[in-house]
Amino acid sequence: MDAEARRQRFRAHVAARLRTLTSELAPPVRALAARPGKQLRSTLLYACATTGLGRGAAPDAPSPTGRREPAADLGQLVRLGALVELVHLASLVHDDIIDRAEQRRAGPAVHVGMGSERAGLAGLSCFALAGKEAADLGGGLPVLVSRAMAGLAYGELLDIERAFDTTLALPDYLELVTRKTGELFQLACVLGAATGDGDQARVDALGRFGLEFGVAFQVLDDCLDFGAPDFGAPDSGKPVGTDHLLGLFGAPTLYALAQDTSGALATLLLAPSFTAADIPAVRDHVRSSGGLAAANALARSRYERALGHLDSVDPQTRAALLDVTAQAWNLG
């Protein structure tokens, strides 16, 4: 099965789950799910599910398509992938209420049509669907999924409480990114890897890879928020630079602020009169002071670290994951 067909199956399964949503909440959530984005998390899960195969004397037989297929049956993987996408979907619905984003994935955010009170309930319904699916799948899933969701929620708190902090230290920034983005990537990789041959060390290694790659991905996303022409649009599909209006500064801006001994950038960002019209000036400052370059270097180094965790993984899984990450990096 090719990648696009697989993504379609993940989407179809998410859509099937969403069918049980109550009629008051369903339409905007379904509309968002129908604009699926890169489906990076479920794709990572699938790639990790191939781990351990191809090792030893008797590699699995090539499938009719000539590609390696994972050990777990596809139906099981589709359910796991849909579960991860469902958690992600729920967090997007709530995330957009929190930072009052109007747009998500090139369409209206869920709360825009239905109001934040109903959108809160819609996100809650998605979390509940994920919880039921995790319980149905059994084993350690309810614990793993609820831990990741707690990490995600804590990451959101760290994200919001830093508002207007122009001196946020790098370790604090990385903690927030790790919780907010890394944990769900880690969950996807662990769930995929755990369907393999049961080698716990490899499951852990892939989990660490996921966590680190999630961090790298988020830092990169911060860079994309600068609309860098060499990178393309940010994953969020949000208008560029709007987080600055909320007082939420990403890695490039934080680097630039740390460099800025004159205090001019902080003064600009904290000015009560700051509007969207000031964003280009911020962007110029952050670029010219090397903030964007420094953040890019950070993303790159975390990316390298993520790949370092794949050293113990078999070459084919490694290759499959490199494929996924390169696409995410817009290099593929």
Binding site: D99, R100, G120, V143, R147, M149, A163, L245, L246, F274
Partner: peptide, 28 residues
């Protein structure tokens, strides 16, 4: 207003955090 709607944001965050922790405790 320009900035985050703090009350709405904190309510959603608190709800997510409390329910996730509760789910974890139940699962365990």
């Amino acid at each position: 207003v320009r900035d985050v709607d703090w009350a709405a944001a904190a309510t959603v965050l608190s709800g997510d955090f409390l329910l996730a922790q509760a789910s974890r405790l139940i699962a365990e």
